[in-house]
Design a protein around this nucleic acid. Structure first.
Length: 478
RNA sequence: GGUGCGGUGGCGAAGUGGCUAACGCCGUGGUCUGCAAAACCAUUAUGCGCCGGUUCAAAUCCGGCCCGCACCUCCA
């Protein structure tokens, strides 16, 4: 079955064919670490986390590169405000970035190149662009000449004429064309600077991604992604630089995610309506936020509302409860598939195959995580029914184990199962709860239900949900 | 001004020509339970912004209108 991807460049759905058979190369524009991540910042990384998980699931060997823009005006400003170096600001917020990504269960990229580690590469590419006549020097600055690249505007679907007409910025009259953008910026007093053939300075914003993506993935790599606001000018400029320098196509597929709004307005620090990732994960489980964001297709905007989080949490808990119940039911069970299967068992197994294929159809349709999660819930309902239908032994255990494997393998793609919720304290807390549960069982045996209820209620207040089942008490942590 | 996206049940959200309009949450009734919880079953849009049109058949295609949003500047 073919994976189909919506490509911003062609504005169409295209079948995915990798540059190198069996391998996928991905470059996603990373953050400028000068502040904590809000959920709008986090969306692309969540989206790409799922995309790369799915590509791995499909058997591709994935190489995923995501940069850090660790020198830039905002970082310098922040450094000056706090009286520390730009490097210290970047290091600090990179650490915070990982803290937030971990809370969301986002796996690490293979490489996190930083701009400041690639200055010689950047200088080399700027020199190359000057050589090829695509760039010019102006008082220590170097500009890219958009008129030198006939296809300029092909990604964002704009012509130079449109852009000139719509320009909302004061144009530097020295530039050859109003849309020319800076490749190398001469440094001002007190700014971080590196030596270059044009004097001390630092890279412009767009050049880093061209340099680092080409360095780590080579020309014509498979996916280039980021938020939809990066289409213009950032990605447009990356194409112009890279294709002018290499003479070949830059990236094969351009994938852009929609924005997160807040009260109908774009979430942005400048608007002041941001909700940080950590503001949410201190109140709700990380996977709940994950599920919340994945229940909308990645290209659609999400109007974030904190009041929708409880519903997302409940939804995710449904999956988590099932995962726990399956673990319990199958613990210590012999799950080797017997030779002869009953017709019930065969029927259930074929149903499992249908769920797998429905999930793949959804994900193959431009990574439709909303539909895919629907399939996961359908599967969950069947597994719950199966679990409730009788004792899990013999053939039933073997069949259920297959169901569990499927559930976990699909859940893993979305990152909604296999979540490690416990810290090291969990072991001790678990021991304490086991003790309390035993005492409560004794109370119940005496028909002292007042005590039994009090224990359960008090535990519930602490976020520990105790349940009585035919197999004895069990509990989970909310 | 230019470019693009969207309006589906109480809420969130899939579905882009044809089965009963997925799925999650909430509500209601039931099963199970000492009571609960979890889970399961049943139930909740004769209708998919509005008006026309095409078609045997449209939420899905076409035209018009209304409303919301984003990008064109740093921005995920």
């Amino acid at each position: 079955m073919a994976l189909v991807v919506h490509d911003t460049l062609t504005r169409s759905e295209r079948e995915f064919v990798p540059r190198d058979p069996g391998k996928v190369s991905i470059y996603v524009c990373g953050v400028t670490p000068y502040n904590y991540c809000h959920i709008g910042n986090a969306r692309p990384y969540l989206v790409w986390d799922v995309i790369r998980r799915y590509l791995s699931y499909k058997g591709y060997s994935v190489r995923y590169v995501q940069n850090f823009t660790d020198v830039d005006d905002k970082i310098i400003k922040r450094a000056n405000e706090e009286g520390i170096s730009a490097l210290e600001v970047a290091d600090r917020y990179i650490k915070e970035y990982f803290y937030d990504m971990d809370a969301l269960g986002i796996k690490r990229a293979d490489v996190y190149p930083r701009v400041t580690d690639h200055i010689p590469d950047i200088v080399a590419m700027v020199e190359k662009l000057i050589e090829t006549g695509n760039a010019y020097v102006l008082d220590g600055d170097v500009y890219y000449s958009v008129e030198s690249f006939p296809e300029y505007g092909k990604l964002s679907g704009r012509s130079l004429e449109d852009l000139k007409a719509g320009a909302r910025v004061e144009v530097d009259a020295r530039k050859h064309h109003p849309m020319d953008f800076v490749l190398w910026k001469a440094s001002k007093e007190g700014e971080p600077a590196w030596d270059s053939p044009w004097g001390p300075g630092r890279p412009g914003w767009h050049i880093e991604c061209s340099v680092m993506s080409l360095k780590y993935l080579g020309p014509g790599f498979d996916f280039h992604g980021g938020g939809s606001d990066l289409v213009f000018p950032h990605h447009e400029n990356e194409i112009a630089q890279s294709e002018a320098a290499t003479g070949t196509a830059f990236a094969r597929y351009w994938v852009h995610n929609g924005f997160i709004n807040m009260g109908g307005e774009k979430m942005a620090k400048s608007v002041g309506n941001v909700t940080r990732v950590r503001d949410i994960v201190k109140e709700y489980p990380g996977p709940a936020l994950r599920y919340y964001m994945l229940s909308t297709h990645y290209r659609s905007p999400i109007d974030f509302n904190m009041e929708d989080m409880p519903a997302a949490q409940r939804g995710w808990e449904r999956l988590r409860n099932l995962e726990e119940n399956l673990d319990r039911a199958l613990a210590g069970q012999e799950t080797a598939m017997p030779q002869d299967l009953s017709s019930n068992a065969r029927e259930f197994l074929s149903k499992l195959a249908e769920y797998r294929s429905a999930f793949e159809v959804a994900m193959d349709s431009d990574f439709n995580t909303a539909q895919a999660s629907g399939v996961l819930f359908d599967l969950a309902r069947d597994l719950n029914s199966y679990l409730a239908a009788g004792n899990i032994t013999g053939e039933r255990a073997a069949v259920l184990a297959k169901g569990r494997d499927l559930f976990l393998s699909l859940g893993e793609v979305l990152g909604l199962t296999g979540v490690d919720e416990g810290g090291q304290d969990r072991v001790m807390v678990d021991g304490l709860v086991r003790l309390v549960a035993e005492l409560r069982q004794e109370a119940r045996a005496r028909k002292d239900y007042a005590t039994a209820d009090r224990v359960r209620d008090r535990l519930a207040e602490l976020g520990i949900v105790l349940e009585d089942t035919s197999a004895g008490p069990r509990w989970r942590y909310n």
